[in-house]
Design a protein around this nucleic acid. Structure first.
Lengths: 204, 204, 204, 204
DNA sequence: GATGAATGAGCATTCATTCAT
DNA sequence: CATGAATGAATGCTCATTCAT
């Protein structure tokens, strides 16, 4: 069963009950068959509602996808922020980034699966600009955390473009493998190895 | 202009001229609009041929996608093999994996872009099993290379499932960023950093 | 800005404020996009009201169209009656018909445009019979005016079916051209020519 | 039964059989229910063909409407041209315009009905510019005929914008009445009266 | 009265695929 | 081998209308 707390936090209230249900069933359909292969009617059947209701709440299929996508993004970002706040030095900061990434994927595997899958769809669609904006926001958050610590200057040795890949690349790669079933051990089991590897990659 | 040598190697001869042209134009369309959004008729128009010809050569759309996908996969694998053969110890082996990955993406950006994009499409479709088989083949190649060297036992310290991610994850992550335009420096510029980071991640 | 006096005359009072506003915005939408292409929601947005309010006042879309249509028809008929009352002989009567037609179209171009456009819609719809009845009423008015004058027997030389076309056809044709922008000189500039032509057409 | 010769002339050959049939059934549907109220599926059912075939031949509904509209326009124009060529002086020219108009409507009532009905639809749609162009072509044809005769200078007394209305307005008005069933005598019965009235309207 | 969420039949259009020529 | 007309299931979406609050 999908974790629905993300939706309750984002669309609270009794009035939004149907809206949340549509999103939940849509998420399930998208993950089961792919975004493009999922039809509005499949979602409608899952919710036992009408197509009109779906269009009333989300304008169109892109809108539905985007609503899910940004809900996931924000939840993930929130967790990262929480972890980051508790880190005191650079090493802990990098571990926070890795841990939060890995923990979120394992806590919300359906949301994570959807995020990987829908990424290209959203970035090409009418909400592509919003995605760019949100991503740069996340970059700023991390940058600000770094700016507030002394030793962060260590990271300056690496090209700015490369830093994120060095820190999160291995974790992302393994998470994708896990979500697609190619490996079975959950990424959380390797949290420490991944954090240590990231640290060794950027420290000198 | 897309590098067509991959096709000439794989489908040689004058008789296969049209076949190669269809593949080339299809690749262009798929990258420009996405696999699902590309219609057979769009490809037909680009090649100035008939839909019948396309179906004659590739049976159906999935067949066309698969033909492109496996052509790319094989070319990439070939380069990896070449690089690996010239490596003599573990450190050089890991560098060979990183270099071959990065060099291929930069040499064939259109094929790489397509590979990322079409992956889920192929794995869900009727050629999904073939993909699994080819991937495990590649795993075996690397495993065999390792088996032939002494020091490879070093890698045994890390969980088998995790090794590929530790070695290639950062490179993949950066290559994706580059292909999607989020960063502009080609991954080859950072070959050495990426290889060094991979090495530090797995050595102890 | 559309001349709203027609509505104030027909739906007077402060209570009918919203009703008049709906009609006015509807007229604007109908002329801008066509009757069929205008949706209830477009009108709702223009009035900043609710769909429920529109349905409360007009029962359904046909009712809204009909309300506008008959308001226009009655206003036009009223002007014709006024002009006719001041005519003393046949020649003046024919001029009255031409003048009133032309003057009304120029005074109320939006209402006239709508009238031409909505005609087939209304005649096919549930208010089609009312339209027939109103049209024959107008015929009777003119017939009665003629019956009250001596010389009207002149018109008897022409087939009854043909009379209206001979008198008003040229004016109508030019008014349509003007409303659709194909010609730019307002029909009122040619009132006298049109009246004279009509007279010559039916006199002998 | 609709006169199909217009279509055979315009889309000749055995290969175009289905194309002609689609047009014919579409014309019937459009006249029976109105352009907007006619669905593609209604036409498909009438032709016992597939929706794909309709879209293959006409691209979309607008294309189907336009194909019919311009076929009618051209046929009507052809008849006008024929009549005009046989007229030797201005009076005969004006009669030719009236006769050709009236005769065409009576010979092709279904095409004429469609023409009146579809006019606004076409002029607003994607073929609106083509309509404007064709109309001005027709204007040129008449102008050229006039230029080749001496006495045509008589017409110069009337404003250019007004001439067409003076000549054809009454006929058009009566034809519309006849096609909609408001009068039952065919316009051809009044050809001479209408031509005479037009002549009296413009001569002095 | 006013509101607007919900309904669901209906529509234009697409597109992979087939097959007669 | 090549062509492209024909197929028709499937899809995203619209919109007039209803009705509970």
């Amino acid at each position: 069963m999908i974790n629905a707390s993300i939706l309750e936090r984002r669309f609270p209230g009794r009035r939004a009950q149907l809206k949340r249900d549509i999103l939940l069933q849509a998420l399930q359909c998208f993950n089961a068959h792919g975004v493009e292969a999922t039809t509005i009617d499949m979602i409608r059947a899952q919710c036992d509602t009408s197509v009109g209701a779906i269009y009333h709440h989300f304008r169109n299929k892109d809108g539905l996808v985007a609503a899910l996508f940004f809900a996931a993004l924000e939840d993930q970002q929130q967790l990262m922020q929480n972890y980051l706040e508790q880190a005191s030095d650079l090493r802990e900061g990098i571990a926070a980034l890795v841990y939060s990434y890995v923990d979120w994927v394992v806590a919300q595997p359906d949301w994570a699966r959807f995020q990987y899958q829908a990424h290209s769809s959203v970035s090409k669609g009418p909400h592509g600009e919003e995605l760019v904006r949100r991503n740069s926001e996340r970059g700023s958050q991390v940058a600000q955390w770094l700016a507030e610590r002394e030793q962060s200057t260590q990271l300056q040795d690496w090209p700015a473009e490369l830093r994120a890949s060095l820190i999160i690349g291995q974790s992302e790669n393994y998470c994708r493998s896990w979500l697609s079933g190619r490996v079975s051990t959950p990424p959380t089991a390797y949290r420490d190895i991944l954090a240590e590897a990231a640290w060794r990659s950027v420290s000198n």
